[in-house]
Nucleic acid binder design. Structure first.
Length: 453
RNA sequence: GGGGAGGUAGCUCAGCUGGAUAGAGCGCUGGUCUGUGGAACCAGAGGUCGAGGGUUCGACCCCCUCCCUCCCUACCA
């Protein structure tokens, strides 16, 4: 009796990446890895699963809801990492005796957040994360921004823009305006909405003038009431936020140093309204966008956290870190035409056709010689003794999976002296010059390298 | 989390005011074609019409519940 068929569906907010897009993603990761290592960053790997205790140690109430949590088969309460910072803190605290400061590391991998999936937002997504532990501002910030910018530049994405700020600068502004520092975090959260919601709405929210119906819950309304500050203070805050000169001064040589590192003036701006939501940032904060793909959301962000180890160790340690969202970056680069959305399905550069099964050994040896020379080569695997009858099918396949060159070694070519092969360029159209050549077998590798160069 | 629009073949969709064996294009497989890809023609495979319940002589179509997807918002990568 027929079993009920299972629908091949994915979990909500989870996605498969078929070879074409997986290849594009890996190219991005490789590029960042290379850029980071040029600055001396080393890889770190930590588990996807952490104990609930560790995961919840540093998060605000809001973040808790987004963490995948469950009990394992031995009833241990665990959860999937929702970013790399918590794991980093735990690892550093546990290995203080083996880590020399500054500790510079990067980590690439999936993280999980249980929120409502949307364009540019997934429940499982990949972060490319970079951190420097143990050195005061702003030299680590400079290096971090420069390393990420280098990766973006190498990808050909010159259309990036960093927005940077320092929460302490805003803290000073608050103090000058007579606002108690305890309100700082909530006020930052409100100010962060400036770009999206506009000045009036932000001012109203700061002074507590929003109507109840604008709120999703009574709890949020209550919270807003706690934030409420006097009108003059709100005006002063907004004025300070619109004027970037104070911040530029606060950041000292940071901007100049970043420029020295090759980040152009057009690729970075001081933006006092940027604060970011995460509570653990205590100083520098930044965000990266791809120009022309802003609607996808920022492709990366980060900042300085001055109490990374607070919950794990008596040693205070400062650090800066940021992460690039691979999924969003790939989307943004594809949307702005920087990177092809789709590579081929095959990673081979040469397709070796099998004229007839009787000649398979010859064909395999040709494929082998290409591989020995470092050229990815794929040989036709299906077969049948058909004397060239399947060539049509083979070329169709090679073309579809995006292999640029094809080799045919049939009876006639191999019988020549010296033995020859046909080398065909699948990228060019019919009847074009140089599309197909009969060449000595010994010269194949040289010809292939020439054509691929 | 709040609001809106939708789910029919692998993909994009059509399907009359509810009527009998659910269609097209693309894609896939094979053939026309025993030495050559992107073309043309022919054939084939592929659907419990998102799931469950209800109304009805009869439901892809109407009603309810659930699931899922997309868009606009709130938060983030």
């Amino acid at each position: 009796m027929a079993q009920e068929r299972i629908k091949p569906r994915n979990l909500r907010g989870f996605q498969d990446f078929l070879p074409p897009s997986a290849q594009a993603r890996q190219r991005i990761v490789d590029t960042f890895r290379e850029a980071f290592e040029l600055y001396g960053f080393a890889p770190l790997e930590t588990p996807a699963l952490e104990t609930e205790e560790v995961l919840l140690s540093d998060m605000g109430v809001d973040a808790n809801k987004q963490i995948y949590r469950f009990s394992d088969l031995e009833n241990v309460k665990v959860g999937l990492r929702f970013d790399f910072t918590v794991s980093l803190a735990r690892t550093v605290a546990a290995n203080l005796n083996r880590i020399s400061l500054p500790f510079k590391r990067y980590q690439v991998g999936p993280v999980w957040r249980y929120d409502k999936p949307k364009r540019g937002r997934y429940r499982e997504f990949t972060q490319i994360d970079l951190d420097i532990i143990g050195v005061a501002p702003y030299e680590p910030e400079v290096e971090m921004v420069a390393a990420v910018a280098r990766g973006l530049g190498k990808l050909g994405a010159d259309n990036y823009i960093f927005r940077v700020n320092d929460r302490r600068y805003l803290g000073e502004v608050l103090e000058r305006l007579g606002v108690v520092p305890e309100k700082g975090k909530d006020i930052f959260r409100v100010l962060d909405k400036l770009q999206k919601q506009g000045e009036k709405k932000v001012r109203d929210e700061l002074t507590g003038k929003l109507l109840l119906q604008d709120f999703e819950s009574a709890l949020e309304y209550e919270r807003m009431q706690e934030v409420a500050i006097p009108g003059e203070a709100a005006d002063g805050l907004l004025a300070a936020i619109k004027d970037t000169s104070g911040l530029r001064e606060h950041l000292g040589g940071f901007l100049a140093r970043v420029e020295q590192e090759g980040v152009g003036e057009g690729n970075i701006v001081a933006d006092p309204s940027l604060t970011r939501g995460l509570d653990y940032y205590t100083g520098f904060v930044c965000e990266v966008d791809i120009r022309g793909a802003e609607s996808l959301g920022s492709v990366g962000g980060g900042g300085r956290y001055d109490d990374l180890l607070g919950r794990y160790s008596a040693n205070p340690l400062t650090g800066v870190g940021m992460s690039v969202g691979l999924d969003r970056l790939a989307d943004a680069l594809a949307a702005t035409g920087v990177l092809e959305a789709d590579a081929g399905q095959s990673s081979a550069q040469v397709f070796v056709a099998v004229f007839d099964d009787a000649l398979r050994a010859e064909c395999a040896s040709i494929a082998r010689s290409l591989r020995e020379a470092g050229v990815p080569a794929e040989m036709w695997l299906a077969g049948g003794n058909r004397n060239g009858r399947t060539l049509s099918k083979q070329f169709k396949y090679a073309d579809k999976v995006g292999i640029p060159l094809a080799v045919v070694a049939g009876e006639d070519e191999l019988a020549k002296d010296p033995p020859c092969v046909q080398l065909k360029d699948l990228r060019t159209g019919y009847g074009q010059e140089g599309k197909q050549n009969e060449i000595p077998r010994d010269e194949l590798v040289a010809w292939v390298k020439e054509l691929l160069a």
